[in-house]
Design a protein around this nucleic acid. Sequence first.
DNA 1: AGCTTATTGTTCGTACACAAACATAGACCT
DNA 2: AGGTCTATGTTTGTGTACGAACAATAAGCT
Lengths: 140, 140
Amino acid sequence: MESDTTEYILDRQVGFLLRRATQRHLAIFATQIPDLTPTQFAALAKLCEAGPESQNALGRQTAMDAATIKGVIDRLRAKGLVTAGRDPGDQRRITLAASSQGRALYEARVAQAQAVTRDTLAPLTESERDCFLALLAKLT
Amino acid sequence: MESDTTEYILDRQVGFLLRRATQRHLAIFATQIPDLTPTQFAALAKLCEAGPESQNALGRQTAMDAATIKGVIDRLRAKGLVTAGRDPGDQRRITLAASSQGRALYEARVAQAQAVTRDTLAPLTESERDCFLALLAKLT
DNA sequence: AGCTTATTGTTCGTACACAAACATAGACCT
DNA sequence: AGGTCTATGTTTGTGTACGAACAATAAGCT
């Protein structure tokens, strides 16, 4: 039996499906939380949940490289949601913390953020959801 | 029993996992196919598999909006992989086709492109793979 | 102390991704 | 024919993403 190894079916490639699922997810996120992007929310959430941190360390925890986290933090600082100061013990470090405004906004949006995950997974049944998340986590 | 509805665990949100899985996939793609990006390859592949098409139509088939597909096609044209001409029947349309160079490059890379999907799904077992792809396709 | 190496943050260049506003061209309808 | 609606492509602006190169600082080693 000759299998069609030469045929490339775009719609069956993981990358393509991942891209489409991400597109849908981003649309859902933008609907639920119009005033923050997913990465901005992730950074703010980490600062609120885990406390002050250096910029690079925060980037590592939120899976953003140094160049990316910089842009995200710049925008959060411009919005007054995050404050920054030099670390007295290490002159290279910038210590970041959520401002009171940032914390308030975070707390006001957590419920919607959880709704985003719910809505994104809505096409799946309860058990499919668990299965999907477990498998997705393995591809990290 | 009080459930922690207020706690937001980043690492359990679909969006975060999708982003990380995508990051890993992009890294694998860049290793296997350094001379094209995933979107560029997708556009080229569609043109090779499905034949000439208008720019917007190609965008729809590859899940890119008009602004995005334009940039992708501009870069493919700059590399000489895609040729473009006005549609005689509809003066708005740009008819795109893979050049002979483009077709040759595509054929030389299909095997690697399939390896990308294989490598990306490598952490999963055979049956997990099918399950995952089926569920992922539902979130589209 | 002096040298080396690693870490932190910045900047630049490239490439998606989408919203919004725009110009042009077809299609349709009365 | 004239008017409306839709489709096609372009442009601009904002926001991720990442690689590469860089300066400043810290840490470790001899």
